[in-house]
Amino acid sequence: EVDTLELTRQVKEKLAKNGICQRIFGEKVLGLSQGSVSDMLSRPKPWSKLTQKGREPFIRMQLWLSDQL
């Protein structure tokens, strides 16, 4: 189980620290539009309420944070 709230907090922190905009992060890392990324980072759904497809971007965020992506 992933703590989506904590994960998105860490992602936002790393984006800010490295000067990466959400649009680029969305396109290059998540394969999503800036609007989708913005929504996901500001209002993450609980892991238990996400479908497999809904969980994929959060898994990619985890990999990106651990420099595996």
Score class of each variant (00 low, 15 high):
Glu1Tyr: 02
Glu1Trp: 05
Glu1Cys: 14
Val2Cys: 08
Val2Asp: 04
Val2Trp: 08
Val2Ala: 10
Asp3Tyr: 03
Asp3Arg: 03
Asp3Lys: 06
Thr4Ile: 08
Thr4Asp: 10
Thr4Leu: 06
Thr4Pro: 07
Thr4Ser: 05
Thr4Met: 14
Thr4Val: 05
Leu5Arg: 12
Leu5Gly: 11
Leu5Tyr: 12
Leu5Pro: 10
Leu5His: 12
Glu6Ile: 06
Glu6Asp: 15
Glu6Phe: 06
Glu6Cys: 05
Leu7Phe: 08
Leu7Ser: 12
Thr8Lys: 11
Thr8Gly: 06
Arg9His: 03
Arg9Pro: 08
Arg9Gly: 08
Arg9Trp: 02
Gln10Thr: 08
Gln10Asp: 13
Gln10Met: 15
Gln10Arg: 12
Gln10Pro: 07
Gln10Asn: 08
Gln10Ser: 07
Val11Pro: 08
Val11Phe: 05
Val11Arg: 08
Val11Gln: 05
Glu13Asn: 09
Glu13Tyr: 10
Glu13Met: 13
Glu13Leu: 08
Lys14Arg: 11
Lys14Pro: 06
Leu15Gly: 09
Leu15Cys: 09
Leu15Trp: 03
Leu15Val: 07
Leu15Lys: 14
Ala16Gln: 11
Ala16Trp: 04
Ala16Glu: 09
Ala16Asn: 06
Ala16Arg: 14
Ala16Lys: 13
Lys17Glu: 11
Lys17Ala: 10
Lys17Cys: 06
Lys17Asn: 13
Asn18Met: 15
Asn18Lys: 14
Asn18Trp: 09
Gly19His: 03
Gly19Val: 02
Gly19Gln: 05
Ile20Thr: 11
Ile20Lys: 03
Ile20Asp: 02
Ile20Leu: 12
Ile20Glu: 01
Cys21Gln: 07
Cys21Trp: 09
Gln22Phe: 07
Gln22His: 05
Gln22Ala: 09
Gln22Leu: 13
Gln22Val: 09
Arg23Thr: 07
Arg23His: 10
Arg23Asn: 14
Arg23Ser: 09
Arg23Tyr: 09
Arg23Met: 06
Arg23Phe: 13
Arg23Trp: 07
Ile24Trp: 15
Ile24Pro: 00
Ile24His: 13
Phe25Val: 01
Phe25Ile: 01
Gly26Asp: 03
Gly26Ala: 15
Gly26Ser: 12
Gly26Thr: 05
Glu27Met: 08
Glu27Val: 07
Glu27Arg: 13
Glu27Asp: 07
Glu27Ala: 11
Glu27Thr: 08
Glu27His: 11
Lys28Tyr: 04
Lys28Leu: 03
Lys28Ile: 02
Lys28Trp: 04
Lys28Glu: 12
Lys28Ala: 06
Val29Asp: 02
Val29Pro: 03
Val29Ile: 15
Val29Trp: 09
Leu30Ala: 02
Leu30Met: 07
Gly31Tyr: 02
Gly31Trp: 03
Gly31Gln: 06
Gly31Phe: 03
Gly31Pro: 03
Gly31Arg: 09
Leu32His: 05
Leu32Thr: 06
Ser33Ile: 10
Ser33His: 08
Ser33Gly: 12
Gln34Gly: 15
Gln34Asp: 10
Gln34Arg: 15
Gln34Glu: 05
Gly35Asn: 14
Gly35Glu: 15
Gly35Lys: 15
Gly35Val: 11
Gly35Ser: 14
Ser36Asn: 12
Ser36His: 11
Ser36Tyr: 11
Ser36Pro: 10
Val37Gln: 04
Val37Leu: 14
Val37His: 03
Val37Arg: 05
Val37Ala: 08
Val37Pro: 03
Ser38Lys: 15
Ser38Pro: 06
Ser38Thr: 13
Asp39Val: 02
Asp39Ile: 04
Asp39Ser: 11
Asp39Trp: 03
Asp39His: 04
Asp39Lys: 02
Met40Cys: 12
Met40Asn: 02
Met40Glu: 02
Met40Leu: 15
Met40Ser: 06
Leu41Val: 01
Leu41Ile: 03
Leu41His: 03
Ser42Gln: 10
Ser42Leu: 10
Ser42Arg: 11
Ser42Pro: 07
Arg43Cys: 08
Arg43Leu: 07
Arg43Trp: 06
Pro44Thr: 09
Pro44Met: 06
Lys45Phe: 05
Lys45Pro: 11
Lys45Asp: 09
Lys45Arg: 15
Lys45Met: 11
Lys45Ala: 08
Lys45Leu: 13
Lys45Ser: 07
Pro46Asn: 05
Pro46Met: 06
Trp47Ala: 00
Trp47Ser: 00
Trp47Ile: 01
Ser48Val: 04
Ser48Cys: 13
Ser48Arg: 08
Lys49Gln: 14
Lys49Ile: 09
Lys49Thr: 12
Leu50Arg: 00
Leu50Gln: 00
Leu50Ala: 01
Leu50Pro: 00
Thr51His: 05
Thr51Phe: 13
Gln52Glu: 13
Gln52Ser: 11
Gln52Cys: 12
Gln52Trp: 06
Lys53Leu: 09
Lys53Ala: 13
Lys53His: 06
Lys53Gly: 03
Lys53Tyr: 11
Lys53Arg: 10
Lys53Val: 04
Gly54Phe: 11
Arg55Tyr: 01
Arg55Ala: 02
Arg55Gln: 04
Glu56Ile: 15
Glu56Pro: 01
Glu56Arg: 07
Glu56Met: 06
Pro57Ile: 14
Pro57Ala: 13
Pro57Trp: 09
Pro57His: 12
Pro57Phe: 12
Pro57Thr: 14
Pro57Glu: 08
Phe58Glu: 01
Phe58Gln: 00
Phe58Val: 01
Ile59Asn: 09
Ile59Tyr: 11
Ile59Met: 12
Ile59Arg: 15
Arg60Val: 00
Arg60Lys: 15
Met61Lys: 00
Met61Asn: 00
Met61Arg: 00
Met61His: 00
Met61Val: 02
Leu63Met: 14
Leu63Tyr: 09
Leu63Arg: 15
Leu63Gln: 15
Leu63Gly: 06
Trp64Ser: 00
Ser66Ala: 12
Ser66Val: 11
Asp67His: 04
Asp67Gln: 15
Asp67Cys: 01
Gln68Met: 12
Leu69His: 07
Leu69Phe: 10
Leu69Lys: 12
Leu69Pro: 07
